[in-house]
Nucleic acid binder design. Sequence first.
DNA 1: TTGTAAGCGTTATCAA
DNA 2: TTGATAACGCTTACAA
Lengths: 333, 333
Amino acid sequence: MEDVARLAGVSTATVSRTLRGLPNVADETRDRVLQAAQSLSYVVSPFASRLATGRTHTVGVIVPYASRWFFGQIVAGAESVLREHSLDLLLYNLGDIPARQRFFGQLPLRRRVDAVLTVAMQFTDAELSALGSLGVPIVAVGHDVPGAGCVRIDDVAAAATAVQHLVDLGHRRIGMISTYNDQSMFLPVAHARRRAYVETLAKAGVPLSEDLVISVPHGMDGGEQAMRRLLTLPDPPTAVFAESDELAFGALSALRRTGRHVSVIGFDDHELSALLDLTTVRQRVFEQGVLAAGMLRRAMTTNGWTPEELLMPTTLVLRASTWPAAVRTVGAG
Amino acid sequence: MEDVARLAGVSTATVSRTLRGLPNVADETRDRVLQAAQSLSYVVSPFASRLATGRTHTVGVIVPYASRWFFGQIVAGAESVLREHSLDLLLYNLGDIPARQRFFGQLPLRRRVDAVLTVAMQFTDAELSALGSLGVPIVAVGHDVPGAGCVRIDDVAAAATAVQHLVDLGHRRIGMISTYNDQSMFLPVAHARRRAYVETLAKAGVPLSEDLVISVPHGMDGGEQAMRRLLTLPDPPTAVFAESDELAFGALSALRRTGRHVSVIGFDDHELSALLDLTTVRQRVFEQGVLAAGMLRRAMTTNGWTPEELLMPTTLVLRASTWPAAVRTVGAG
DNA sequence: TTGTAAGCGTTATCAA
DNA sequence: TTGATAACGCTTACAA
């Protein structure tokens, strides 16, 4: 920066002002400085600048499973808007216990980020207060954090739509594929969707049965395993609601391999769901990431920002993986 | 840090030494410092430290299409090892022309990273020299960069295996689905796989035909569109080699919708390929990211590091999407 | 509108 | 083994 100042015949303070586009610089001076910077192909050192201002220009993003489609989409969405505003994104993947303990033990985000985005996490009170101690705004996607902004769908209502769809098709034995994680903890989403399942069936007068709800680790393999277990029941379900499309893919795979026929509905509308003809509940995931990042930006720039709430719509997408109960029953009988 | 020093009754220099685990600190002093830091729940400010040392502790990662499965896997693999060594990863997605121009125009990586990882990019000479001007080690995955380390498969040989598989099944009209991008530039991978297609068919004495090679934008939609075009040919192919599994998925979708039967082989072994019974060439993508990051670390820590080369194996995975030419021909005739 | 100079929170050199 | 102290490269009162 000194070189630029010298070349332009001004002080480093003026160079700094010019490069940051501050208003109080004479046009003629500005031109000279910009030209000097250009000719020396100079860029400011971000770290020095961050040290001096105390603003980190980075956002911390906390997800439980970075490799799942849903989280990938959220992160991609957020990234796209953060990048536009030259904000860095620091990703923390807290899927397993050690990672999580390390994270909350040393809180590597301290002094490191201007804001935090958390996605579909289930925090303990201790973890929440640790996050709070960072002293930066928080936005949560897919779950609630007290005092934080929030972008989400109405999980219970959306899942109820899915289950109701199966009921409307005349199904009376309806299974569910749910998930648990390493810590044997259920993510908020799993809770909400299971609740919807129970409530919807109860309201429809469809008998509930413990056997019909299978909890597995998330993913295609989990889905496959769950469907296989459902198929071994003495009275297997005629329809199954899977907590996510990836689970549903696994379920479809099990059905194909065993040659059995069970209606399957998923949740998310994964990009491959159309190919597999999977009936599902669509949510705009990437867009939730975009909106969350926008909120984050507002939180960082507005002082006295108050947490906002955004509720995104969902749609039932009908495809060929669900059909009326009667059709197959007659065919099989 | 001053507070910690005061509490421990030492100088900031000693605190710094202790916290970085330097050897020349008395055990007793070390304990006192660590305890003081602990009780004040103090962490060093990464930016101040980076400014002082000049080391950024971050790696820049350049990809053309962050949202594709392949690139996601590479990045995830790299991230997992970088994280372990508390290195930050800064992702740049250079898919479209503006992003690319901005990137090479201002080179936001300057003064910003200790090393660079590039994935399956096709750089111009100007871009290469811009990268070189960063003065940091570079590792390339899936393509060559002069003077850089390299992790890759033998693309030509692997693709040849795929095409040869179709030839061995007796196919004589073999199509290919290839890709181009926004800039109408072909990624290195597209080049290599097309070359393998041409060479393998030539060697096998199978007639080549321009019509049988369709170039589309990457993705399921592209694959679907390409297969539809192939099907409208007066003499459509009996087998098709798709440059990637995602393209192959689209091709399968087109076949299903039209009720036609064409053997399809993909490339990658995407996690959903088994579900779709897609014959393909498997490469361990995540692992390539892991190995590249390892190489990067060596490059950053070893001085006088000389570029390494890693060639990863591939496997032909036989599934139900390819079959002998005769079977269907007879059936159709 | 511009310049001077004091931070920002570390690390590193040199003495002690 | 430890402590002063000068960088590191920028920002920002405060003055001019």
